[in-house]
């Protein structure tokens, strides 16, 4: 069974059909790309998958559970975590704390234990801090654990967003333009990190990206959106050579 399945997914903002009749099917462990020109509706798809927007039509199923009508908190608990196109870190918190927020629902202790730092607090905080540092190591951020998130350089902020999303222990990870603003070296490194995350954490990843080198390099399957509708879908190599896709992108450059 597919881990994520949308049927006929649509949303309308006033008169604008931002996404229409989208069918996505993502299998467990896949690295799946969602591409398309600016304004095609890619981020809007993420916003529907994570409960930020409610679709005006169609269904979303995660691992057999219907997500329609659920709010972002519930959806995160059910197993979808995301990053944001316009970075949304907890700027005045440390790098470590950003990740520890992600672990919030996996540790259990009461408010009273927090007030006095007793009981389960100590053990759970120790465990969660160790786990957070392990995760930061994957993204090569452990050296900056005490830095304020807003003081990180741009590329590292993008990586911290992924680390924080991973901390919520998702089944499906959504990355919205993870390489935006990165130089080619950083992008190459990011590609390795994304592959590493998929392989070592058994993760299923759906990503939006404009950098075709990254898309061609790591995505196994693609869906191309244009004006909110599916233009093409299938294996990466085939889709990227599809004349309609090429036209859509060239059209955008003008």
């Amino acid at each position: 069974m597919a881990i994520l399945e949308t049927n006929d997914l649509s949303i309308q903002f006033g008169g604008l059909k931002a996404v229409s009749h989208l069918d996505l099917k993502i299998e467990k462990g896949e690295l799946y790309g969602l591409i398309g020109p600016n304004g095609a509706g890619k981020t809007t798809v993420f916003n529907m998958l994570t409960g930020v927007y409610q679709p005006t039509g169609g269904t979303i199923y995660l691992d057999g559970v219907c997500l329609n009508g659920k709010n972002p908190v519930e959806i995160n608990k059910l197993g979808i975590a995301r990053t944001f196109q316009n970075i949304r870190l907890f700027g005045k918190m440390s790098v470590l704390d950003n990740v520890r927020v992600g672990f919030g629902n996996s540790i259990k202790y009461s408010l009273l234990e927090s007030f006095f730092h007793v009981g389960r607090y100590r053990k759970n905080e120790k465990v969660v801090t160790e786990k957070a540092i392990e995760l930061l190591k994957v993204f090569d951020l452990d050296g900056e654990k005490d830095t304020l998130a807003s003081n990180l350089p741009y590329g590292k902020q993008r990586k911290l967003e992924i680390a924080r999303a991973m901390a919520t222990n998702p089944k499906l990870l959504l990355l919205d333009e993870p390489a935006a603003g990165m130089n080619p070296n950083e992008t190459a490194e990011l590609m390795n990190t994304i592959r590493f995350v998929r392989d070592n954490f058994d993760m299923t990843i759906l990503l939006i990206e404009h950098d075709m080198k990254l898309v061609g390099g790591i995505c196994e399957k693609l869906t191309v959106l244009n004006f909110g509708t599916e233009l093409a879908k299938g294996n990466t190599a085939e889709v990227l050579h599809d004349p309609r896709v090429i036209t859509a992108y060239i059209g955008e450059d003008e």
């Binding site: 930020v52 907890f90 700027g91 005045k92 918190m93 919030g104 919520t168």
Partner: peptide, 19 residues
Amino acid sequence: GRAVMASRDNRIAAEAMGV
């Protein structure tokens, strides 16, 4: 406490992280 500060710094991201 971290949940409170996360909600302060970015409400949308906090909710997306299950806060």
